[in-house]
């Protein structure tokens, strides 16, 4: 099965990279952009039979490595 993991910065955590990208978009006249937050997207190919079981394991992967929960949130999608 395939798992998609989205890692994003928590609300309130400053994202200077997002701010820089927003600045560039404004320079390009995309004035409607109010905020940009940059995150990570990961695709995992998983050998596993049970979706439920794998979901718990991917959550563990996120907690322990894929995301830093001090500053980041994560979301998992399994296909």
């Amino acid at each position: 099965m395939k798992a998609k993991v989205y890692v994003t910065l928590k609300k309130g955590v400053l994202d200077p990279q997002g701010k820089a990208v927003m600045g560039a978009l404004k320079t390009m006249s995309f004035d409607e952009v109010r905020d940009v937050r940059i995150g990570k997207f990961m695709e995992l190919e998983i050998d596993g039979a049970s979706k439920e079981k794998e979901e718990a394991r991917i959550k563990d992967m996120c907690e322990r490595l894929l995301a830093n929960t001090v500053i980041e949130n994560y979301r998992i999608e399994i296909e």
Binding site: V13, L14, P16, Q17, A20, N68, V70, I71
Partner: peptide, 17 residues
């Protein structure tokens, strides 16, 4: 050390990038 949990918090990108 922060990633290993031996120290709290995180080191993020410098504010000036």
């Amino acid at each position: 050390l922060t990633e290993a949990g031996l120290l709290p918090g995180a080191l993020m990108r410098n504010r000036g990038l």
